[in-house]
Amino acid sequence: MSSESFIFPSPQWAEAFCKALNENPEYREAAKDWVWDVVFVATNVPSTVVNAIAQLMGLSGVTSNAGAMKFKLRNGTCQGSEFYIDASKADADYILEADYSLWKDLIQGKVDPVGAILSRKIRVKKGSFLTLVQFSSAAIKMTNTAMKVPTKFLA
């Protein structure tokens, strides 16, 4: 693994996560029947983080306090990622939204993803809750994968 680490959330982090999913056979097995695009939205992102992302993307005058990452997930693989500084522009079959701090806790292994969904700390804004619940082992493998991505939290 390289010594490089990625700001969360950012286009670079999304790309690294997508790659890490493809390298994880446990995720591939648990998500083999998953065939939908997913957007993860982080809300209440601290301004230091937003400013850093904007700089990374070469944008100026960004007023957002959110970020959205879209992943094209098919049969246990990740076929691409996108990043949106304007979360309202990100659309997919599933949209899962949570506070920046919740995603941070999740990636640091402090929060269980299934519990976070069931307790609605992660809000299922779009998509079938009932289908999602059937993929709880995939959600856990996905979180384990995220924990392996070298991540830099600026706040």
Partner: peptide, 13 residues
């Protein structure tokens, strides 16, 4: 429209 997301917009819980 997607009724699930529209309803969750109005009633998140």
């Amino acid at each position: 429209e997607d009724p699930i997301s529209r309803i969750r917009d109005v009633l998140p819980d």
